[in-house]
Design a protein around this nucleic acid. Structure first.
Length: 548
DNA sequence: TTACCTTTGAAGGGC
DNA sequence: GCCCTTCAAAGGTAA
């Protein structure tokens, strides 16, 4: 059982995977409220407006995994200037990516991240206790036919991310996001995501009023006593009600017990290959336990697929995807996700905190609705080729070098990076002119990726930039290809007429840095110690990886 | 038809 | 406690 590690612990893990362990700094130095991400019920009342809510003020460069533009320096109080993503829309890659090619960067990661990690782990248990799990049953439900996130309409914050000038297409009640065909207007009093019949729902205050007081208008409702909370000790507050009424709406969850009300509205987090209603989990049935393995397996296949609760970034993606798509006329999720990843990093901590809080509530509610559910339950639901892919990402250095050898053969198809190398979306250049904004990454350390980080302080860790088969020259060419007319015009106009960074010839030696879209955030498919020696002299080590 | 791509975060298990 | 793996969303693309 692990505690949640909300601040990119896994990202750190990805980034510094297989890097030599370094002495960890005192963790108290960067502690944020240790129970901020705790999932105990009483702590849910913690408000974002609570002065005690924000993290212990950290200088931006203390969070190396998140490159923060220089003009978006956070004051100790959390005030910020205009974020980059508010200054310029995402620059859209003019060309689609080439599947099978990837550029990944592992950022310099300092001790702060580890400190946070330790804090979160020590702060509080992030998951329901075993007692919880013993109490309730898995709720058999059916999958909601619509794939729209029910939380999305709820997380409409006041900033521009949540109140775009033009509603995303998927939020528009008039245009079908997939077909583009106008669709009948949706009753304003009902959520566009759930065609709940007016008679089936009542009126409740906006669940996220603590976040968006101006949107405290009723959205959904619960029938009086319609939802029996399985955990009386965890009385739902308004936020909880919001989630219950939306993503984990009891109306969408078939009751685990006959006494519970039924609505017939499927749970959005449930995926079931076949619409079914099982009276009880097979594992709990003695009859089932006596069944043959084949039967059990079949029933296992029939079990509803309770999906994982969305994390903060997923919530953010669902919220912003349509906006990015609208701005970029890009529909490929891989490219969109890259943009969103950058935008995510460019969010202020306050903005991210909203999503972390939402995600925390989602997890909490999910744990309450499915106390017996485990993330492990969904293991194997997806095909295993992905696992093979990930294994290839963590292959040995020798294998990587072999892949690099294959790279040299140039036998692979050209790669088009999704994002333009620099400032593709909103990240302004650093003051030192480098497009790589990695505050905690001294260039000296970058220049010697293979060197132990300790030589440059504990904060320095080598960056590595990995790509799938592609030469650096190809990368340079492809980078230039990012200069679409639209992106160029957009950036030119929004950057005071300055030409886009990539519109200028890019020296080959500068490619690694220029290719960085969100340096510390990229998965560490390869690492510094795996970099080719020839690349270690570069500000960032550029390593290639063969396509699988 | 289905897996892959891409992103970050959470969770679980191994060691 | 660290490290690794898997999955969550999404939609075009490739196999």
């Amino acid at each position: 059982m692990r505690s949640s590690r909300p601040w990119s612990t896994n990202r750190r893990i990805r980034a510094v995977a297989r890097t030599p362990r370094r002495p960890q700094p005192a963790r108290d130095a960067f502690q944020k409220p240790r129970d901020y991400f705790a999932e105990e019920g009483p702590r849910m009342a913690l408000s974002l407006r609570d002065p005690a809510y924000p993290w212990v003020p950290l200088p931006d460069d203390s969070r190396p995994e998140q490159p923060i533009p220089l003009q978006r320096t956070l004051s100790p109080g959390g005030a910020r200037t205009v974020p980059a993503d508010e200054m310029a829309p995402p620059r859209c890659p003019p060309q689609r990516y080439s599947q099978g090619h990837k550029i990944a960067v592992s950022g310099t990661l300092g001790p702060v991240m580890t400190a946070r990690e330790g804090v979160t782990q020590k702060g509080a248990s992030a998951r329901p206790t075993s007692q919880w799990r013993l109490v309730s049953n898995k709720v058999p439900v059916v999958q909601h036919p619509h794939h729209m996130h029910p939380l999305t309409p709820l997380i409409t914050y006041s900033n521009d991310h949540f109140s775009p000038a033009s509603p995303p297409t998927h939020l528009s009640p008039e245009i079908d996001p997939k077909t583009g065909i106008p669709r009948p207007p949706h009753p304003p009093e009902l959520s566009p995501y759930y065609p709940l019949s007016p008679g089936a729902v009542g009126q409740i205050p906006h669940p996220l009023g603590w976040l968006v007081p101006q949107q405290g208008q009723p959205m959904y409702s619960l029938p009086p006593g319609g939802f029996r909370h399985p955990y009386p000790a965890l009385a739902m507050n308004a936020s909880m009600s919001s989630l219950v009424s939306s993503r984990f709406s009891p109306h969408m969850v078939a009751p685990a017990h006959p006494g519970l009300p039924t609505s017939g509205i499927p749970h959005p987090a449930i995926v079931s290959p076949i619409v079914k209603q099982e009276p009880a989990p097979p594992s709990l049935s003695p009859a089932v336990s006596a069944k043959s393995p084949v039967t059990v397996k079949k029933e296992e296949e029939k079990k509803p697929h309770v999906k994982k609760p969305l994390n903060a970034f997923m919530l953010y993606m669902k919220e912003m995807r349509a906006k990015v798509v609208a701005e970029c006329t890009l529909k490929e999720s891989a490219a969109i996700n890259q943009i969103l990843g950058r935008k995510w990093h460019n969010l202020s901590r306050e903005e991210q905190a909203k999503y972390y809080e939402l995600a925390r509530k989602e997890r909490q509610l999910h744990a309450q609705l499915y106390p017996t559910w485990s993330a492990r339950d969904n293991y194997g639901k997806k095909k295993k080729r992905k696992r093979e892919k990930q294994l290839s990402q963590t292959q040995s250095q020798q294998q990587i070098q072999e892949a690099e050898g294959a790279l040299a053969s140039k036998s692979k198809k050209p790669c088009i990076q999704y994002l333009p190398p620099e400032k593709p979306c909103d990240s302004p250049a650093s003051s030192h002119g480098s497009t790589l904004d990695s505050p905690a990454t001294p260039s000296a350390a970058l220049a010697s990726p293979a060197a132990p980080a300790a030589t440059h302080s504990e904060q320095a860790q080598p960056l590595s930039l990995t790509t799938k088969p592609e030469t650096r020259a190809q990368l340079a060419l492809h980078s230039a290809a990012f200069l679409s007319a639209k992106a160029a015009a957009s950036n030119s106009s929004q950057m005071g007429g300055q030409p886009p960074l990539l519109s200028r010839p890019l020296p080959l030696g500068a490619m690694p840095a220029a290719l960085l879209t969100s340096p510390p955030s990229f998965p560490a498919t390869l690492h510094a110690h795996q970099a080719l020696p020839v690349l270690q002299a570069q500000p960032l080590s550029l390593v290639t990886k063969s396509a699988h």
